[in-house]
Structure formats: structure tokens, C-alpha cells
Design a protein around this nucleic acid. Structure first.
Lengths: 140, 140
DNA sequence: GTTCTTGCAAAATATTTGCAAGACG
DNA sequence: CGTCTTGCAAATATTTTGCAAGAAC
């Protein structure tokens, strides 16, 4: 995605496209997996972690990223895939490997819906599996 | 559950029934919802948080408690309900209220199974909804 | 007496905020 | 100017470990 399209996309989501935001967005695009704030900090050494934090916070509030708790100590972020503002739409299942501590997107496995009891208003969903990824399962 | 039965149960799970462990177990039994370490620390003021932490760690390793990440900053613990050692068995869906920051067990909603891609070995599952609980939804 | 358990203190890790300087318009 | 954004530093929150004293057997 070139910068012009990226900027338009951010504006479309209600976010002013500053240079930091573009950098963080690109870092997320390049990441093969959901990444932590510390991961982004490493790949973008010029940015302060507080700045990255605020970009991610803003992205999360504007449905540009999903936030995942995978059981590692740190939150993981990934780009939303759908263009919809309804974050429930493009949810897929995630898998956290307890050995290599990486989180995998099972892109082809969408979160099966459930019957939410009356009264609860759902804003987002997380379906997280934990165990061993294929690589680590082979090594045990 | 009286102490004798509780002690037998702990032994059955491979855990020596010390007084701290019994206290923590009872605190978990009395909790209406999954609780954090800090919650337990409050209800058991005589115990140190490191001691509680180690009890919970031990319980988790022996499938006596589930550990939940609900998106609050802190981990939540709840007793496993089944007698099985397979923690996948008694999994139900949880709901985290972003307003009152409590986690609810949707006991009647079990986690729908998915087709795990080949190679992944699943050891546990978390299905977490987030949004507003009935109480908080009414207040907004 | 050897091993397991506990409590205190403190380390380690992550997240989040205060604030002043800078960019933007 | 006035507002939004950024970077540095530091506060907060939570989890986790080191270690010596104590309990259990």
C-alpha cells in the first residue's frame, strides 16, 4: 500500500495521518503475526514506546487494530482485516504457543458465534487457543 | 465442602493440603466470579501476596484453577468445575464488562469447538466476550 | 535433618501518565 | 496563537523471584 492510500485509509477511519502513525501502521502490516508494543519498539527504534503506545491506543479506539490477550505478559496487536467498523466481523481464532510464546492467527478459522445471554451487549470477541504450535510440537 | 473432603480433593489433584492452600481454595469457592490475585489478597488479609501467587500457580499447574485473561490488567482465577484433569472439558464462555471491569461466567454457554489446523496441539481454550453487562448496559 | 512451605522484601516486566517542547495549521 | 502530537521521564500496576526462617515429616 503506498503512502497516499494509507493516509486516505487512516483519515477514513477518523485518524489524522501523522508520520508516527504511518510508521506504526506499516510495522503492523509487515508483522507476520500479532505483535507486542515491545516488538514494535524494536522494529522502530526511532520511536519512543510512549508514542507507540498512544498510536496503538488510538488505533484500537478507531477499530484499526485488534488487541489480543494471549496469556503472555504483554498485549498483542494486529490490524483489523475488514473495512467495517464492526470489529466483531473479521474475528478469527488465535493460537498461542506456550513454548515459543508466539501468537498465530488461524485466519481460516472464524470464531463460532454463541448465544449471548439476554442483557449483555457484546463489543468484541476473543477466541484463544493455547498449547503447542506445529514447530514446537515436533520438538518435544 | 468440609475440610476433610477438601483436603482429600487436593491430595487427589496431587497437591499437599496446607493451610494456605485450603484458605485460597475456600476464597475461590466463595467468589461469585473469577477473581484476581489482588482480590484474594483483600479477602485473606493474613496471607502474603507472594504466598497466594504460589498457591495459584500450583493450582493452575494441577488443573485446580483456570487462568483467564480478560483484558483487565490482571489475571483472573476460577476453580475448575469438572473433576477431569483435562481442562478443556468444562470450558464455558466468559464476559468481561468494560465498564464495571468484572468478569462473568456464562456457565450455560459452553465454548463451541473449532477445527484446529493440523499440527497444533491444544492444551486450553479461552472464549472471552467484552462489552457491557446487563447492569451497566442499563446505566448508559 | 532434609525437604517443602511461607513471608518479607525487592526485582522484573508492562502499561500508563505528566509535562514541556515541538509540529501543524 | 491554539490545538494536536511527540519524547523523555517517571508513576503505576502486577507479576515474579531471592532468601532466610519456619513447619512438616
Amino acid at each position: 500500500m503506498d503512502n497516499t492510500r494509507l493516509e486516505r485509509m487512516l483519515i477514513n477511519k477518523g485518524v489524522k495521518p501523522t508520520s508516527n502513525r504511518i510508521l506504526v501502521y506499516k510495522a503492523l502490516m509487515n508483522a507476520p503475526r500479532p505483535v507486542s508494543l515491545a516488538d514494535i519498539e524494536c522494529s522502530l527504534e526511532s520511536l519512543d514506546k510512549a508514542s507507540i503506545f498512544r498510536v496503538l491506543e488510538l488505533f484500537a479506539a478507531n477499530d484499526i487494530v485488534h488487541v489480543l490477550e494471549d496469556g503472555s505478559r504483554s498485549l498483542k496487536y494486529e490490524l483489523c482485516h475488514s473495512d467495517s467498523h464492526h470489529t466483531v466481523d473479521d474475528r478469527h481464532v488465535h493460537f498461542y504457543c506456550e513454548r515459543c510464546m508466539q501468537t498465530f492467527c488461524l485466519e481460516d478459522v472464524s470464531v463460532p458465534p454463541i448465544d449471548t445471554p439476554a442483557g449483555f451487549i457484546t463489543r468484541s470477541v476473543n477466541y484463544m487457543l493455547k498449547g503447542l504450535c506445529p514447530d514446537c510440537a515436533g520438538k518435544e
